[in-house]
Every structure is written in structure tokens, then in C-alpha cells.
Simulated assay, not measured.
Amino acid sequence: MGDDLIEKALGLLCDKYIFPEKAAEAAAVIRAKRAAGAYADLGEAELGEQLTADLAEVCADKHLRVRPREEDLREALTEEQMIAAYVQQLRRNNHGIARVERLDGNVGYLDLRQIPDASAGGRAIAAAMELVTHTSALIVDLRKNRGGAPNGVIFWTSYFFPDDETHLNDIYDGASGRTRQFWSLAHLPGERYLDRPVYVLTSDVTFSAGEEFCYNLQTQKRATLIGATTRGGAHPTEFFPLSATMEITVPIARAVNPVTGTNWEGIGVVPDVEVPAGEAFGYAYEKALRHVLATGTSATVLEEARAALPASG
């Protein structure tokens, strides 16, 4: 079983990986190690860990992993079944939206743990934005966000731009050799969030699509990033089952930001204000409250902001 799993993984690696030369090099290294007995007598989970470590030595790509499949995905082996299981999973975890709140001082707060595909999560994203649309400043907490779908990032971040004229990201697809441009959307459900500050909280857990969310807003100077440098994974990925219980995730494309001409792969997104991740919320909330006190006109909101300020740090 181990040899079959390894060969299937290497076949997918060489066929799909965005960097074919690296794939061939990694496959040669792993085959040599297998011939030397490096993977003998390893259980599936241990084998996945060792293969992932060996792939990392050659490719240094945090998206490239061999790992156990999640329990609720193990019956999904075809592409159609995997999509259906993914949609069900999104519904169960509220499309990654862990918390939406109006904080004292009329500051909006979004805790986003995942970025859903826009076709599945668009209504939930719009509903979350509707609940913060009249706040005076917004905190978007991505400290526990481990990724998701690029089109979901575009849907979310389009709310922070006035029209469809902001070029947010490009993705180069390895299989076709084509580059797809991603621009802010011309139409969104509900109101856009304009002319008010946005603070994005980051940590060393923030990954993949969560990082793109950060990078898109930072390069367009539309948000202030506060926290720790993110994990550093910029390659859109597909999941391929190796068996009912194991899978390989293979990067099949790479992001190219239109402002910087590059991405955050391997280095992470460096926040504008570096503070320990655990202190990021307090720092951002204080900045938001001070903005409210400097610009607000509602006596009730100003009173809330003054009362909240001493506890915000």
C-alpha cells in the first residue's frame, strides 16, 4: 500500500505542480529514499509526514503536503463528490465566518476563519457585510484564517473599493500557461464599505487566501495590517485523494500581484504595525476608537467610544 500511495502521489506531483522542474527533482529524491528503505514500515499518517518533509526540503512550498483526509471527506473520491462535501463543510462552519459584531464606539468586527468560494459563500459574506455596513471603522480578524478560495477573496475585498476599476491580483495557471486577472467587482449585494478605516489582524497562522486578503488590501493602501508576519503560502492549490484516507495537496498556480509584480510565497505578508498577534486586537480597537473620537458626531457613539477606550489596550 505504501509504494502504491507514494507512486500515485509522485504522479500527481509531476503532472500538476506549478514548478515542473522542482517536481521532477523531488520525485527523484523520494524514489531514491524509497529504494533505500526510508519509508518501510511507516503507517499512513507517518508516511504522509515524512513525504511532506521530504517535499519541503526540495520545494520549500508550504502548500505541498501529503496528509490524512478529514473524516467527513473520506467518502468523497470523485471531483463531484469532493465539491459536494466541500459545500456541506462550508455550511457547517458558517462559511468561515466565526463572529460578526458591532463593538462599543460603532466599530465593526469580523472574525474570519476561512475564505469560502464566492459561489457557495457569497450570501453569507454579503450578510456579514450588511451587519457592519454602518460602522465607523472595521476590524477584520484573520489571525486564525488558514485559507480558502481566491474568488472569495475578491468578493470580500471588493466591498472596500468603489467600483470595478481596482486590479487586485493575477493568477498564473501552470496547466494552461494563462494568467487570469482579478479586479474588484462591478456589483455587490448591499453597500460598499468606503471612506472609513479598515484594520486587518494577522498572525503566523494566517495562510494562503487569508494572506491574499491581507496583501491585496495592503498593496492598494486600503487597510492597515496589524499583528505578526503571516505564514507565507501564495500558490493556489488543488486536493487529490490518494486513497479514502490520504490526500496530496498540489499547488497548480501562483499569484502575481499587479502592484508588486510578485507575491508573499515563503516570506509571508509583513504587517504595517508589528505587534504580538495576541495584542493585535487591542491595538487595532484603540486606533479605531481614536478615529471615532476624532471624526464622530453622534453623542451616543462618542460616549461609547470614550468609555471603551481605557479597556481597549
Results as ranks from 00 to 15, higher is better:
R290M: 06
A32N: 13
T166R: 02
Q181C: 12
T245R: 15
D104N: 13
A98G: 08
S312V: 04
T237Y: 05
R31H: 09
N93H: 07
A45D: 14
N145R: 00
I226H: 01
A280C: 05
R65H: 13
Q89V: 11
A9Q: 06
A36Q: 12
G296N: 00
E25I: 00
R222N: 12
R192T: 04
L185G: 12
G11Q: 13
S184K: 01
S176M: 01
L168W: 00
A284H: 01
D164C: 07
T206R: 00
L185A: 11
V250Q: 11
A234R: 06
E304M: 04
R67D: 14
T52D: 13
Y193E: 00
L77I: 13
E211R: 01
E70W: 08
E303M: 13
K33D: 10
I171N: 01
G233S: 13
G261Q: 07
E21P: 00
I139V: 08
K22C: 05
T202I: 07
A308M: 04
D173C: 09
V153S: 00
L103R: 14
G122T: 08
L112E: 01
Y159R: 05
Y17V: 05
N106C: 07
L293W: 02
L12P: 01
E71R: 15
G174R: 14
I154G: 03
T260E: 15
Q220I: 09
F207H: 12
E44D: 14
K22E: 14
V269R: 03
P241R: 11
K62E: 08
E46T: 11
F281L: 04
H134Q: 13
S243Q: 11
A223P: 05
N216Q: 11
H187Q: 14
G232Y: 04
R178I: 02
F155T: 05
Y172L: 11
H291S: 05
R91E: 08
K287G: 02
A223L: 07
A56I: 06
D272Q: 03
L110Q: 02
F161A: 10
F19Y: 14
G105A: 07
G296P: 06
L12C: 08
E25G: 05
A40E: 13
D170V: 07
T133S: 15
G268T: 06
L194W: 04
E101D: 04
A84P: 08
D4I: 14
R102W: 02
G266E: 10
V140S: 04
L309I: 01
A23L: 01
G278Y: 03
L12V: 08
I125Y: 02
R67N: 15
L103P: 11
R231A: 10
P241V: 10
D195Y: 11
S208T: 13
N145T: 07
A118F: 08
H187L: 12
L103A: 10
A9L: 06
A223G: 03
P276G: 02
D163R: 01
D173T: 10
F240E: 12
P189D: 00
